[in-house]
Design a protein around this nucleic acid. Sequence first.
DNA 1: GAGTCAACAGACTAGGCGGTCTGTTTAAGT
DNA 2: ACTTAAACAGACCGCCTAGTCTGTTGACTC
Lengths: 198, 198
Amino acid sequence: MATMQRMQTTGLELFYAKGYYNTSVDDILKKLELSKGAFYYHFDSKEDFFVQIIQNLLARKVYSSLIEPIEGHENPLTLITNCFDEAMETAVHNEMDFGCILSNFLTEFNGKNEVIMYHLNEIVTVWEVNLISALQKGKFNGYLDRHVDCEAVATFLMSSYFGVRILMTGLSPSAKKYRFMTQLRQYFKSIEAKPITV
Amino acid sequence: MATMQRMQTTGLELFYAKGYYNTSVDDILKKLELSKGAFYYHFDSKEDFFVQIIQNLLARKVYSSLIEPIEGHENPLTLITNCFDEAMETAVHNEMDFGCILSNFLTEFNGKNEVIMYHLNEIVTVWEVNLISALQKGKFNGYLDRHVDCEAVATFLMSSYFGVRILMTGLSPSAKKYRFMTQLRQYFKSIEAKPITV
DNA sequence: GAGTCAACAGACTAGGCGGTCTGTTTAAGT
DNA sequence: ACTTAAACAGACCGCCTAGTCTGTTGACTC
């Protein structure tokens, strides 16, 4: 049981760092000092292995870092700002940052593996749904302007976050983060509830 | 000479659709009905082949679709809006859209191949520089608010574009595009030159 | 018409890949 | 003590991959 978890943890590490297709089962087993027998005792195939990683590790990771932090009753724009800030700060401090795990896998498997894409898209949908409902709640509570299209805002936010994580893998990630955050705040200012013009 | 171009064109097609590591030299040669001898007569290696594709095809593609359209003297916010709109419209009409080519390769090679990453980042930098200068020119010409940080805007724009192209590979790309564009316009409104309050 | 060389063809190799299969160990049950 | 089976170990297989190497073709020269 502990072995299964170790396999999945190092599996995700290596898949994230080197990509799924570029990481062999032997690579993972070598790092764990385990054998082929151990792997295929616990998992049916490499694909089955990865699907379980998605459900057990990736889904929880996305939830704890991107969904749970925006579930409060405060201003959703503030919550999202802090959530993105923290997520990006983790990336900045991680010397081996390869971008957003979810977005990387979406890119790698798009058009190549329908089964895996299905599970990945499920996570994306959960994130989207939670973002939208957080925004709608914020609109109801008077934090957002009445005319704001919450679904559109969610799409825009997800896009920009996926994208900035790609850019942050390049030069000066902390500068990229700072610039991104200033413009996010600028954007948020434009959709927040307008004070009643007296 | 014509063979080299055919190789590069189909090479980019397949690399884009299936990924670099997931596309074998034989795959490309099979589609072209050519032999190993032909390939290694024209190119030193698979990596050399790809670097040439980047410089000959990818760089031009990015230039013609993302840089050249924003080089005019009009309002840069309008130019960028139309540029993104058109680029995304092409993606919507492409039944086999796998996202932004540049962003996909950035994701695939990040941390895996320094040589290729160098050439990819060169293209990113060119795009960034041109975006910034277009915005600065727009600021000088009174289209943008005086307090706008052009570098930050460029980072934000590149992020959001990379990201939305990923989302658009999922469900209802045209809806994603529409929502994205509404929020882009919203954001642009917040950084455009403010009319003098009388 | 003999020589030359660019532009290929295709057999070949060494290594890596996912996956299989036959063991072996170890601990618990009876 | 004997059985049973979970949890592995590791040799093995067929296939694929980047890259090599020895040819062959056909146009062009002199």
